[in-house]
Design a binder for these strands. Sequence first.
RNA 1: GGCGGCAUAGCCAAGUGGUAAGGCAAAGGUCUGCAAAACCUUUAUACCUCGGUUCAAAUCCGAGUGCCGCCUCCA
Length: 494
Amino acid sequence: MNKNNKLYIYNTIASSKELFKPIEGNRVLMYVCGITAYDLSHIGHARAYITFDIIYRYLKRLGYDVIYVRNFTDIDDKIIKRANEENTAVSSISAKYIDEYHKDMNALSVLPPTYEPRATETIKEMIDLIKGLIDKGHAYEKDGDVFFRVNSYKGYGKLSHKNIGELLAGARIPLNEEKENLLDFALWKRSKQGEPSWDSPWGKGRPGWHIECSAMSMKFLGETIDIHGGGSDLIFPHHENEIAQSESYTGKKFVNYWIHNGFVNINNEKMSKSLKNFITVRDLLERYHPEVIRLFFMFTHYRSFIDFSFEGLESAKHSLMRLYQAINLYKGFKDKVDKGNIKINYLNRETEEIKDFNNDFYDAMNDDFNTPSALSVIFNLVRKINKIINDSLLSGFINHNDLNFLDEALLFISLVSDIFGILKANPELFIETNLKDISKISLTEEEIQAFIEKRNMLRQKREYKMADEIRNMLLEKGVLLEDSNYGTTFKIIN
RNA sequence: GGCGGCAUAGCCAAGUGGUAAGGCAAAGGUCUGCAAAACCUUUAUACCUCGGUUCAAAUCCGAGUGCCGCCUCCA
């Protein structure tokens, strides 16, 4: 762990952590590859965009002025295929799924980037880029298709740490007669019957996939940017190709820091459409609070693959509850202090210092955004908060130093919650609503309340046996009763 | 076939040279008519195996085993 208060980022191209230094002053130029809009987003997308959301939020917290671009691929084979299947326009498919994506991201509290360009809005820039590449001998046209000449770029493979020979040996792509080299990739594709197309110097056609990110990155951020991110599956060939075409065109370094998030697996296997084991964000949001999903991902470092499981989600849910309970406990406690039910004593006593937790937290985050480690700091802090409050509740006194620590601790937690995008709900409400899902059982809320009242009458008469019978009966139906000083509440169990 | 990653308690998961964070679960305690909830406390002495380097290794090096990913669209 680094103790020098500086941010280190794991750079894929260097295969190691590097000190982060922006190109210019406090400004950070960040580009993250967005989705291809042809279907609902799945939990893999959720992980990727939550990861970069936290990076975005954290960089801003460090005082950087971040210009964040995240694109939409709205022209592509899969979208065309989907449009044909549904007998509708390509643009209506992409518009629909961009809209659905926004709904999902919004629900997950993923902040909107500074710019969200679409490929089809950047055709002109792409054509200019391709023209430039042809002029410089890095690309060639063949019957309306344009390919990038991989052999013309000597650094090819530097990101994915492969060399052209290895790639050729392992290639599984069928040989395309029109290409000079198996590894050459399409910059421009001539249009086929019934496909959307744009005019170009090479006839009607549409862009290849890789060129759009180079064009959009340059359009909004310039020729060299600080951070470029995406899922680890994009390292090859997508990002490798982006580097080749961008650097061949500008003669400058394209990206300083490459950040890639690990994959989401299900039962230890990659999630994919062909295995039919993917879970949509939409489905997950029906079962879990968005903050539970965020916390679930944060419990694993962003670069590790994560094995998705409902057990893991349940665990995250209980963890989140623990955080909310502590906030709630503090609120109730402050109320008691304000009302004079807890007396403040002004003896000088050693107490915890918030700055220790603060330092540990930033050390963790500065170490390549180590959220699991940062979370452990928060849970340690929560234990201290609970302990101080419970001790005071028993004794009726709170030391003024401890009280001050509590106030600072809660302020710190609220700052952390801005970075993580959690703990934004009303604690009392969150705890209540997350435990009550009446739809799962055969009783109505009114019926349950009636039983609770009946039982409490019996309890007042000390007829505990009958009271317990009601409690057991409700438990069999999935309703668990909880008695407290404030009355009896219930929650639904599975 | 080539390249790369991972292997830490019942489960999940940090830690990458100085003697094992945290979460969930479990057990004990406080509270309660009893429970539940909440909170507190406790919970790894072979960190996959074998060998090596070092005063010191989960951490570095070598070999092996197992799992996974990339080399095809993919977050």
